[in-house]
Write a protein that binds this DNA or RNA. Structure first.
Length: 759
DNA sequence: CTATCGCACTGTAGT
DNA sequence: AGTGCGATAG
């Protein structure tokens, strides 16, 4: 087995120990992904079928990356592996077995926004004050309960929980939970936590289904085990009961999701649940310089509740860690941008060798501005998702309602969109009426029309006829064709198209982008089920982090939160905003456990760096538009001084940080005028960060459709350069068959294709 | 029912 | 700074 060459003894052991329970404690940079990849390859080489291996990860990105790496070793076989996030894998299973739970297979997955909107309406209906019952708290309590496998029935019987609720002035919480859950069920909808909780219930209550999947999954693997919650762990425990071939990989020092129910206790329980457990520790770090490894160790050593830690490296000592203080947050950005600019030339490093990590997404804007001024290409990972944009959610609302008419959140979103004179009062009345009759709104609208007042009934009929038409097309049209029809006939597209403001154009383009996305979904041969319903379930579980890394995304500086940086590595990492109350977050002040989690987060940030690490903090920073003074983070003082660069090396930047009063005023004025300018061009700004490359003059718009001719050379945003082979009419639209250089022949609906005419 | 204005609030991460 | 809410006028 030559692919084991170059592994150290514990790595080799982890790859070869395939039968029974195995726990791999993998320190930062210890080659974990490589070990996991080879482990799967090893199983496949032993003749295990790919569909018998279940491999669970925490993010879609991690799953995708691992699948690609395995594919490189074993080839096409890797496609049949069951590999994905807990949520995506189990939503797939739930879709197949939905009827056992009384759900329809077209169930909607409610995202956090949907959940909050539903809770808000429940609070209103129950006359509860949303100042007392804070939506985030309420959702957090419900979510926390679900992650501990506490259903609303169990919650109502649990005096301890109810006492906690009473203490936080929310004694009715158990009732809200019950109403929320029943409404979700009535809407044929599941929230994120339901995907796990209901999988638990499905497997627990259905012997045959449990056996089916126990039989199927002979080998189960979990990555980032320290981040799993009880609900997730319990599913895996049930699934691996028959074969007992379960392998978990984790690092307690990198546990950063306790706030949402992840339980380090799972690691301890694991040893109890599997007495024959074999434990392998990967402690040699191959990623970072000795200075970085030691500095990381010196910080994490401050945690009282750490389990085990002895990560070491035989790498060079390397550069010392740079600590930089700046006057303001703007200057912090400038400093980072300047440093990247210089180092790119000095070391001939590329943009992709740098990462800027921050604690909160809000910090990204200042870094963006600085990089743009220096003309440094960057990409933002995570943050505000494409699918959270209003115009996207509007169209998705129509698509969702077409697939599942019980989806009440979608109904509320689209019933008066575009405006048809149905206000909140009317909607509330309709919902109350439906509730009273114990039917859903769609049934009310279609079967009880006579009971609705004439004025409204007329408008509603137009709406129901529209939806009925869409429903009829569900079987005959593919997801993309149908989405295009819905976008047009609902009037959404027309509204956006007529809005010629910068924001309006951007929104129109975003909708086009969504339609392109659906088109890609349909064209993708790997997707077996091309229904609109599957598409919708899939995208709810996809965040902007998971978008395919395009070629144009290649050589760019990466900006992201520390949370999303887990598992990645960069030559030079900047951790910015090292200030008390920002990192560690102010919210962490309440408990030791929270501070320790922040410290682990810092540990994660530091261990992303291969060669250079720079920590920066500002003395003044804008919070909600107010300039505030900041103190350096306590974590900075916890780093063993011997790993920090001496004062002399800092002086260059430190000097820049201190300005005399005159300079300071001048600078403030500059900052002010810049931010005013920024305000006016927000839409442009968004567009640039979206990485859409447009040349206004040559850009193809639906309005100059006639400009296209057969034989013309064009460039498509996604498919690249091609020659127009044929132009066709499709209803009142034009379609083009284009032969792309790399993608082959594609048929595009022109009004949604982003084409640029080349010749 | 819709549009507009002034006021108050914002509390971290990602499926 | 940006958002979302309630009150008010049209």
């Amino acid at each position: 087995m030559n692919f084991l060459d170059g592994l150290n003894p514990p790595q080799k052991e982890a790859v070869e120990y395939t039968e029974g329970a195995l726990m791999i404690i993998a320190g930062a940079g210890s080659g974990k992904t490589r070990v996991l990849t080879l482990r799967v390859a090893n199983l496949l080489q032993q003749g295990i079928e790919p569909y018998q291996i279940l491999s669970l990860t925490f993010t879609n990105k991690a799953a995708k990356e691992m699948r690609e790496r395995i594919e490189k070793i074993v080839g096409i076989e890797a496609k049949s592996l069951w590999m994905g996030t807990f949520h995506s894998i189990f939503s797939r299973i739930l879709r197949i077995e939905a009827d056992r739970l009384g759900y329809d297979r077209n169930f909607t997955i409610y995202d956090t926004d949907d959940s909050k909107a539903l809770l808000k309406s429940i609070l209103k209906e129950q006359n509860l004050d949303d100042k007392v019952y804070r939506i985030n708290n309420v959702l957090g309590r419900i979510s926390g309960a679900k992650n501990k496998l506490i259903t609303y029935k169990l919650y109502a019987q649990n005096d301890a929980l109810k006492a906690e609720d009473a203490a936080s002035k929310m004694p009715e919480l158990y009732r809200i939970y019950e109403i929320y859950q029943k409404k979700c069920y009535k809407s044929n909808a599941m929230d994120f936590d339901d995907l796990l909780l209901l999988t638990n219930i499905l497997l627990r209550d259905n012997e045959d289904i449990r056996q089916k999947y126990q039989q199927k999954f002979q080998y189960v693997m979990i990555d980032e085990f320290q981040d799993t919650n009880l609900s997730q762990y319990n599913i895996v425990k049930m699934l691996s009961q028959k074969h007992q071939n379960i392998c978990v990989v984790g690092d307690d020092a990198q546990s950063i999701y306790a706030f949402r129910g992840a339980d380090i206790q799972n690691i301890l329980n694991f040893e109890k649940d599997y007495p024959t457990l074999k434990t392998v520790r990967l402690e040699q770090n191959y990623r970072s310089t000795n200075n970085i490894v030691q500095a990381a160790n010196s910080v994490i050593a401050n945690n009282k509740n750490q389990l085990r830690k002895s990560v070491w490296t035989s790498n060079d000592e390397g550069n010392k860690i740079k600590l930089v203080k700046t006057m303001t947050d703007t200057e912090e950005g400038r400093l980072v941008a300047d440093t990247i600019f210089e180092e790119k030339h000095q070391n001939s490093w590329k943009n992709e060798d740098f990462a800027i990590l921050y604690r909160t997404n809000a910090q990204s804007r200042i870094m963006e501005e600085a990089l743009r001024r220096k003309n440094i290409k960057y990409k933002i990972v995570g943050g505000f998702s494409f699918y959270q944009r209003q115009e996207i959610k509007d169209l998705l609302g129509y698509l969702r309602f077409t697939v599942n008419q019980r989806d009440e959140e979608a109904f509320k979103r689209i019933i008066n969109l575009p405006k048809r004179g149905i206000g909140d009062t009317t909607v509330a009345k309709l919902l109350a009426m439906a509730n009273e009759k114990n039917i859903n709104v769609w049934e009310l609208l279609t079967e009880h029309t006579t009971e609705i007042s004439n004025r409204i009934a007329g408008v509603l009929e137009v709406f129901t006829n529209l939806i009925k038409k869409f429903i009829q097309l569900l079987d005959s049209k593919d997801a993309h064709e149908l989405a295009v029809i819905i976008a047009k006939e609902s009037g959404l597209l027309k509204d956006l198209y007529e809005d010629k403001t910068i924001e309006g154009i951007s929104r129109y383009e975003n909708v086009q982008e969504l339609l392109n996305g659906i088109s890609e979904f349909v064209d993708n041969e790997e997707n077996e089920d091309k229904s609109l319903s599957t598409f919708l379930q899939q995208i709810t579980l996809v965040t902007s982090m998971d978008e395919a890394s395009k070629d144009e995304d290649k050589d760019k500086v990466t900006l992201m939160t520390i949370h999303s940086a887990k598992g990645l590595e960069f030559k030079h990492v900047f951790v910015v905003g090292m200030e008390e109350n920002l990192f560690p977050s102010q919210m962490a002040n309440n408990s030791l456990a929270a501070i320790e989690e922040e410290r682990r987060l810092f540990y994660v940030a530091v261990t992303r760096a291969e060669q250079k690490l720079t920590l920066t903090y500002a003395q003044n920073r804008y919070y909600y538009g107010n300039l505030q003074q900041c103190e350096p983070s306590r974590f900075l003082s916890e780093i063993d001084k011997q790993f920090l660069q001496n004062e002399g090396g800092m002086s260059k930047w430190t000097r820049q940080g201190f300005m005399n009063k005159e300079e300071s005023n001048e600078k403030d004025n500059n900052t002010f005028s810049f931010s005013n300018q920024f305000k006016k061009t927000t839409a442009n700004y968004t567009k640039v960060t979206n990485l859409t490359k447009t040349t206004p003059t040559a850009d193809f718009k639906p309005s100059n459709l006639a400009a296209l001719k057969v034989g013309m050379k064009v460039e498509h945003q996604k498919f690249g350069v091609g020659i127009i082979k044929e132009l066709q009419s499709f209803q009142d639209d034009k379609k083009a068959i284009i032969n792309f250089e790399t993608q082959g022949e594609k048929t595009l609906l022109l009004s949604f294709a982003k084409l640029q005419i080349l010749e």
